[in-house]
Amino acid sequence: MATGTEHAPTAGEYIGHHLTHLTSTGHKQASVIDWSVLNVDTIFWSIAMGLLGIFLLSRAASKATSGVPGRFQAAVEILVEMVESQSKNIVHGDRSFIAPAALTVFVWVLFMNAMDFFPVDMFPRIGELFGIHYQRVVPTADLNGTLGMSIGVLLMCIYYNIKVKGFGGWLHELFTAPFGNHPLLYPVNFAMQMIEFTAKTVSHGMRLFGNMYAGELVFMLIALMGSTATAAGFFGHVVAGSIWAIFHILIVVLQAFIFMMLTLVYIGQAHEGH
C-alpha cells in the first residue's frame, strides 16, 4: 500500500499525503483561511455525487407511474415519502422547495459519505496515473463541503424568516426573543440570536465533517496496517477494515439522515415565532 513515491513513505507522510487536498494552486494551502484557493477534488467529487444522485432520482421521476411501481421506483418512492412525511411534521408552511431540498441534501450527502467505502488508495492511485498527486474523495470530510451546505441552510432559514414573518417581524423577533420585549434586553436578545444562528450553522457543518473526517482517518490507519505487508498486518487490515466498513454503513446513512433532519428542523424553526 505504498503511495508510489520513490521512497516508501513513513506512516506520518502517508496520512499527511492522504489528507492533502488537490488545490487550484497546485500546492498545499498555507493559511487556515484563503479565499483564493479552491479544493478541486472536493468540488469534482461533490458535483459528481450530486449529479449521480439527481440522475438516479430524475430517472425514477421520469418513469414514475401511478400503476404498479418497479423495485427502483418503489425504493425512490419510499425515500420521497420518508422525506415528505418528515418535512410535513417539522415544517408548517409552503414546502414546495423545502421538501425537495431536504431530499436532495439526503441523497447528496449519502452519496458523498459513501465515497468512504472505496479503498482509501484507489482513487488517489488512479489519479497518480494521470499526474494528479493529491486527492481526497470524500467531499463531506472537507469542512468547506459541509459548511457550504450548512451555510446554504442558514440562507434558507433567513429567507423563510423574512418570507413568513416579514422583514420587520423578523427584526422584531431578533431583538425581543428569547428574553422579552424590553429596551434593556434588546442587545442581549440580539446577541443570543446571533449566537444561535452561528452555533446552528457551525455545528450543522462540523458534525458531518467531524464524523466523516474521523471515519476516513480510521480507514487510513487500517490501510497502514495492511501496508506493513506482514501476515498479521494483512489479517488485521482485512478484519478491522471489514468491521469498520460495516459499521461505517450505519454512520454514512445516519449522518446523511441527521443532516437532512437538522436542515428541516432549522428551516421549521424559521417558520415559527419564538
Binding site: H21, T23, Q29, S31, V32, I33, D34, W35, S36, V37, L38, N39, T42, I43, S46, I47, G50, G53, I54, L57, S58, A60, A61, S62, A64, V76, E77, V80, S96, F97, A99, P100, A101, L103, T104, V105, W108, P139, D142, L143, N144, G145, L147, G148, M149, I151, G152, L155
Partner: peptide, 28 residues
C-alpha cells in the same frame, strides 16, 4: 482549511435542490 470551495459547494447545493424541486419531486 477554509477556502472558496465553500462557495462552490453552496452554489451546487442550491442548483441541485432547484433541479430536484423542478424535475424530480413533482412527477414522483
Amino acid at each position: 482549511n477554509l477556502n472558496a470551495t465553500l462557495f462552490a459547494q453552496l452554489a451546487v447545493f442550491f442548483i441541485l435542490a432547484w433541479f430536484t424541486m423542478k424535475f424530480v419531486w413533482p412527477p414522483i
